[in-house]
Design a protein around this nucleic acid. Structure first.
Lengths: 155, 155
DNA sequence: CCAAATGGTTTTATGATGCAACCACACATC
DNA sequence: GATGTGTGGTTGCATCATAAAACCATTTGG
């Protein structure tokens, strides 16, 4: 067994997320889905990716509850792939990736889009991490704590 | 050329970020580095990953300016890998991944850690995306806008 | 100087990915 | 209802990336 090591069952939530969406194309498919793409062919032509891989990824995301298949929408009998709440919940991850590129990419001039507030058309702020009481936190202000084990009835 | 398609040169900042840190182990290495790990052996034993892959990843991250090698720190003549500001800038991405797992994972009880505010020991809030004027934004409140092309002297 | 630990590189096997060709079904046309 | 076209995939095959283990060089410790 030399398979790509799986992070399934790992206690770290980051590893668990990567297990779900860490594949090469997955987040880009999500990006397009958030944009409104729904059909197999739309994803394929927009992303230019191999169709077999797209097929596998879509099925995997459906299995994980990130996407679900909807019977139709424009009348045709084909199916569509739409984001579930779990899928839409990936939005902050995409924003974080985008902002990191915007801030640190070596050639930021090649980035041609900006994420703006729809109401005002103005760029959004950077993602903010805050404490319960509202203080802005950066990494050194945080730490990891063991979660108290949930009560179990028996050993 | 059947190589894994590279997103390099893609105008999408998400694709660019994935090109940099979308590899299987990269973000977990960053996670450990944020935790304070510095040495090759520390990463290897903590993550349990193959040493050749670790070697390639570390070199790649150094090349990209995410890590840098420091000559020593505990006196020994070995080198260490420490995060640059660009590397520390990945923190929000890790937080976003963590929070997504916490919220949507099918077995959240297996997640044993929580990210807390160091000062109070209380869990942090969810990442917030805000408009310039401070309004909280969710995905439908946002849109992508073409960035005005930066002025070029000649065609 | 010898032994063991550290920090890797090389070798080899296998899984993942990409590309192209193929197939099945839906839908439109006659 | 036979024919043709587009959508939505699956199947082979070639190549790349990854994993595991063996190997090597340097450092540290005795």
């Amino acid at each position: 067994m030399v398979k790509r090591t799986s992070f399934e069952g790992d206690a770290c939530p980051i590893a668990r997320a990567l297990e779900a969406i860490g594949d090469w194309w997955t987040l880009l498919i999500i990006r397009e889905a958030l944009f409104g793409l729904r059909r197999f062919g739309e994803f394929q032509s927009k992303l230019g990716m191999a169709r077999n891989i797209l097929s596998v990824r879509l099925r995997s995301m459906v299995d994980q509850g990130i996407l679900e298949t909807a019977p139709a929408s424009d009348g045709s009998a084909y199916q569509e792939y739409v984001l579930t709440p779990k899928g839409r919940g990936l939005f902050p991850i995409l924003v974080a990736l985008r902002q990191w590129s915007e801030e640190f990419d070596d050639h930021p001039e090649e980035i041609t889009t900006i994420l703006v507030d729809r109401a005002k058309g103005r760029p959004v702020r950077k993602l903010e991490l805050r404490a319960e009481d509202g203080r802005l936190l950066s990494q050194p202000d945080t730490m990891l704590k063991l979660r108290p084990a949930p009560r179990r009835r028996s050993a």
